[in-house]
Amino acid sequence: MELQAKAFKYGDDINTDYIISGKYKFKSNDMEVMAHHAMEELDPEYYNKVKPEGGFLVAGKNFGMGSSREQAPLVLIHSNTKAVLAKSFARIFYRNAINTGLPVIECDTDLIDDGDQLAVDLEAGVLRNTTKGTTIPFPPLPPVMAQLLADGGLVEHFKKHGGFNL
């Protein structure tokens, strides 16, 4: 399946407090409500920009550093973020994204500008920058993570197999 959407570009070292502030994570269990605050510290308009037509969150190095809060990938999913593309990811966010079914792609994001139209085929491992007419290579997910993502996340994997089956 090919995902197509616009790129919304941000910088390096985006921590999970910026993705969803600690002051909100206790306020509601409803991720649709929480999603309105996604990326608020960096861009209060993130939700309004991305929600209607979906988007790719594009960042620099070390995306998702800091707290282990799983609300971070969840509010991105609920704000209609199709995938996160970054030069590198912090490990807990990376695991949480796979576990909750948010695709994460490690690639050279210098080749993407804010507003570029992107097309991603995760199975085929192809990322195209349609605006620039370029193809950006990215390494495939390790088999364990690819399996979890293909199953729709860790909960769905457990439901399907009755436990870990990797």
Binding site: S67, I92, N96, T100, L154
Partner: peptide, 30 residues
């Protein structure tokens, strides 16, 4: 532990690491 500072117990020679809630659920279940 479902908290990033779970790495604290490395000081007492425990390989401890932070994970998210779904990882935590899988660990508690299995």
């Amino acid at each position: 532990g479902c908290d990033s500072h779970t790495c604290t117990y490395g000081a007492i020679n425990v390989f401890s690491t932070g994970v998210g809630s779904t990882d935590g659920a899988a660990a508690m279940a299995s």
